[in-house]
Design a protein around this nucleic acid. Structure first.
Lengths: 185, 185
DNA sequence: CGTCTATTTGAATGTACTCAAAAGCGGTGG
DNA sequence: CCACCGCTTTTGAGTACATTCAAATAGACG
């Protein structure tokens, strides 16, 4: 699955593929387990082979904000922490029993040097991530809560079934009570 | 300036530098001129050599939302339109008399093929853009308007002087009247 | 100087949050 | 399999945040 994911943007020969896989141990993560801790430096990039995750931030008042969901076939980490070695702003929690490939920061750097084609792969990956986040910003500043909610279930219908109302509310930036009243309509 | 910008992440030899510059004609843009039109496909990536720009979206009700500001030394375009050849969601307007380098989509593709090191450059560029947008999303869903306003003037003090209150309000996603009342405190 | 737009102010309205309580739902242990 | 527990969701009242609209004031620019 991970090779198929990479194959969407670049093609690797067999030796590159095995080289890659050798640096990407996979682990299984039970539901509710947390694999990135807010406040700690995160030096691992994850690829979700199966299952799904939720990344959230907890502020000083205990308010939880969902930064992103990561379904299967996604790359996920606290990119700021991973790349700049600063404390993570988010925690990453398994929404269900999952399998992930793990790529450490040092292996990440090595891989990019050994297989320069991967620069292109990650360039395209980050391009798409950037575009996605920018569209979400536009959503946030220009749409009503109702419109953002409808957008969410339209764009991520599978996720919308897997996560709680409360988590969707914290993704949209509203309280669960308010989301409930919006849905009533 | 553009070579210095690129030199922050990769090093090019003289031939690569001249090759690069030959594909990047520069133009001067007078204040208020619009160089990307919302609704049209945008096939140019810009580098702001001097001056500054504002990217905004106009919705069906005529409401303006500022998606980003681009000061000097920034790369800017409607990335979704540029890469996926879809109609642009934003217009890009010069806040002052400016100079930009322009890179067409086809030259962009050529350059990446001819100078593979540029893959790394853009990978890093998009990484940073992704991190920036993700932090802005977190701001939007977790902070009050007052906090977001203070963050803005703290992070972009130079910009805060150059743009109007109204434009900052549309960047934060509130009305100018409300921002005015927030500032009074 | 005059015009155009930005900013401020205020009143009325709508949107969203807080708090508290009730109802629903899923998982766990007996 | 049922009863209980904890968490999510709903509901409602009261409050705070944010918008709309209109009008006054202040600035920018030709």
């Amino acid at each position: 699955m991970i090779l198929k994911n990479i194959g969407k943007h670049i093609s690797l020969n067999p030796s590159e593929k095995s080289q890659l896989l050798s640096l990407l141990p996979s682990i299984s993560v039970p539901k509710k387990e947390i694999i990135i801790d807010q406040g700690r430096i995160c030096d691992t990039l994850f690829f979700v082979e199966s299952g799904s995750f939720r990344a959230y931030n907890l502020n000083k008042d205990g308010k939880e904000s969902t930064i992103m969901f990561a379904p299967k076939d996604w790359w996920v980490t606290d990119m700021n922490s991973f790349l700049n070695k600063v404390p993570s702003l988010l925690s990453l929690e398994a929404l269900e029993n999952s399998m992930v490939y793990t790529l450490s920061r040092s292996n990440f750097d090595d891989l990019l040097n050994k297989i320069p084609k991967l620069e292109r792969f990650f360039r395209i990956l980050f391009q798409k991530a950037y575009i996605r986040e920018q569209l979400r910003v536009l959503d946030n500043i220009s749409l009503t809560t109702e419109e953002r909610y409808l957008n969410f279930i339209r764009k991520y219908p599978d996720l919308a079934e897997k996560v709680t109302q409360k988590q969707i509310a914290s993704y949209l930036g509203v309280t669960p009570e308010f989301l409930s009243s919006v849905k009533k309509k």
